[in-house]
């Protein structure tokens, strides 16, 4: 834990408890009664009440590489679930299955079934374009379009025909920027390029761009890894606020971040979903040896 993150936690109050738990030295954890060590079935609880996105027995192959092995996971409506795990464990791959971004990789092959609100997203009835309007995505590196701030946010509503006239579009753009906490900073320079903003502002612009389409699920692929601690804190606050309306799936390498923002945590290891549980439970009382090793810093 660096000093920078400590100061940043002071600025935001709603996550201090979770942070404290992670910072506990090892000996203060309750030793689990029985701890699983073998790989195979996911321990913990992959189910949740009120499931919205349901992934059943997902396997992903990149050519001959078996990247995701038989993953089953339910994601509830308006919950934040964090996917953690060492690099190359398949958490980003799993995330990209949820809005079919893997389609653009020619060698990728997905088997299993993912339903969004009961509808099979790999089925014939759902076009990936329509799916992505319902499942938005925020990427690791802020990637605003080389267009004006206004056009960045207005792009989604425009292509999906969400606004009938200019006034309505203006309204969507303003509301989205407001929700992303960016409106105050950019309202006088809507015509300036989005790429001229700072890294943290760019990422909030990307979030505004995503929520302008009013999706049902937001996928975030390490959204803070390119940002400084202060910008990270703002994004985390934003995730908290957005979780009231959206189901959020966030991939992160920072266990502190997972502890701060998520309600549930899923731990991936070598393409397997090792353990899923309530955030508190994962960090205080992991049920699998690998999870424990990872969160205590012994692997990863």
């Amino acid at each position: 834990m660096t000093m920078a993150i400590m100061t940043e936690t002071e600025t935001t109050e709603n996550r201090t408890s979770a942070t404290a738990q992670v910072d506990l030295p090892d000996e203060k954890r309750d030793p689990p009664a029985t701890i699983a060590t073998e790989l195979g079935a996911t321990v913990g609880n992959v189910r949740c009440e009120n499931p919205f996105v349901v992934a059943e027995n997902i396997d992903v192959y990149y050519g001959d590489n078996h990247a995701i092995k038989n993953v089953t996971l339910e994601i509830g409506k308006s919950e934040v679930i964090a996917l953690i795990g060492p690099s190359g464990c398949g958490k980003s791959t799993f995330l990209r299955c949820l809005n079919r971004m893997n389609d653009s990789i020619e060698s990728a092959r997905v088997t299993g079934k993912i339903t969004l609100d009961g509808q099979d997203i790999y089925g014939k009835g759902l076009d990936p374009v329509a799916l992505r309007a319902r499942v938005g995505m925020v990427f690791q590196k802020p990637n605003p379009f080389p267009k004006s701030i206004y056009d960045n946010v207005a792009y989604g509503p425009r292509i999906h025909g969400l606004a009938t006239d200019r006034a309505e579009l203006d309204d969507i753009v303003h509301r989205s920027l407001e929700r992303a906490g960016l409106l105050k900073e950019v309202k006088d320079r809507m015509d300036e390029p989005g790429t001229g903003l700072s890294g943290g502002q760019q990422q909030r612009l990307c979030i505004a761009r995503t929520i302008a389409v009013d999706p049902e699920v937001i996928l975030m692929d390490e959204p803070c890894s390119a940002l400084d601690p202060i910008a990270t804190a703002r994004i985390e606050d934003l995730i908290d606020e957005l979780s009231e309306d959206y189901a959020i799936v966030i991939v992160t390498h920072s266990m502190q971040q997972a502890a701060r923002v998520s309600r549930r945590v899923a731990y991936f290891h070598l393409g397997l979903l090792v353990e899923v549980d309530e955030t508190d439970k994962i960090f205080t009382n992991p049920q699998h040896r690998l999870t424990e090793d990872y969160i205590t810093g012994r692997i990863g």
């Binding site: 653009s104 309007a133 938005g136 995505m137 990637n143 080389p146 292509i159």
Partner: peptide
């Protein structure tokens, strides 16, 4: 053209 721009557009539902 950077792939990130393509991904951003695809991610928001552009055909």
């Amino acid at each position: 053209v950077p792939p990130s721009i393509r991904e951003a557009a695809l991610g928001i539902g552009a055909s």
